[in-house]
Design a protein around this nucleic acid. Structure first.
Lengths: 161, 161
DNA sequence: GAAACTAAGGTCAGGAAAGGTCAAGAAGAG
DNA sequence: CTCTTCTTGACCTTTCCTGACCTTAGTTTC
């Protein structure tokens, strides 16, 4: 017999087949499944993580909501693997900006956050490149490492918001 | 269901797509959305800050208004290269004030504008330093970035005049 | 020209409406 | 029986909205 968590997961996945981004109210969903609200958190934490290919964001207070976004990574590929890939191939400044733009479009980042991240990225690169005289390829490697760190940070923070 | 604040934000952003500077009356806007005037302040304070890329000014009394300016973060031309240098070295509070003074002397800025920019600069620093516990060097870096953004905005506007 | 009036916008604290966290017990799996 | 997963409830934090009261800037009156 399937658990309640399984049923909730199934329901949410069903919805997420139709749309890329789903906005729900924790209260509402809990009422639908006649469970305690924190049960919803449990489902999200165990079944809709970044490694499952989802991004969960939320807002408290009046009119609060939980937003689940289905990330369109290649099937089977995990977020962390994508980041590892970045490391191997390196990231040019243009590619980095493309990645950030995409993250804005998918509402992972606010515009001003992306601007700030990009600036941080450039700062680090300028500093390091000058100090250690990095070649183009080495710069791309460094950029990949920094971008990866930033994105891991952002994805970790996403659920808390 | 979206909150009233979201709707007001949406409306203002819509308007600000068409124009760079928007002048509204708090009363009027509050009447449109059938809310208390201070609700407007709440929206401005939480969604139209410097970090969101907006500058909000206002005047009280008869014929009072609220002016929202969309900051142009797009990098400019040569002027920006000078500003990029700021990024590398960081800017202390004293240096920032010196820079602003020089800009007044060279008639790039009005005195009141410089005072305003300085205030904005300090606001941002106080906020960020408190929230993230920045060290002295990090503060200088952040100050450089913010000052750069502010000056880019001002210089962009100067061209328009 | 100063005082009183009027017409704005600003501040702040409190309550309500969400969602988050955590620990403990229950239920399943092996 | 033991280990993991699930479920619940008490308590916490954040966000939103309102209303009472304050400040500022024109306008009118004397």
């Amino acid at each position: 017999m399937r658990s309640l968590s399984d049923l909730i997961e199934q329901y949410l996945r069903e919805q997420l087949k139709k749309v890329e981004t789903l906005e729900i109210q924790r209260r509402e969903l809990a009422r639908m499944f006649r469970c305690v609200p924190s049960q919803i958190n449990y489902v999200l934490e165990t079944r809709f993580t970044i490694n499952h290919g989802f991004l969960v964001q939320s807002r408290r207070g009046g009119g609060g909501f939980i937003r689940i976004t289905r990330l369109n990574w290649e099937p089977g590929e995990e977020f962390s693997e994508i980041l590892e890939e970045l490391l191997e191939i390196g990231v040019s400044q243009e590619e980095a900006e493309l990645i950030l733009k995409r993250l804005i479009q998918t509402a992972v980042l606010e515009y001003e956050e992306a601007v700030l991240l990009n600036q941080v990225l450039q700062d680090v690169l300028i500093n390091e490149a000058e100090r250690n005289g990095l070649g183009g390829e080495e710069q791309n490697q460094l950029r990949a490492r920094v971008l990866r760190a930033l994105l891991l940070f952002v994805s970790g923070r996403a659920h808390a918001r």
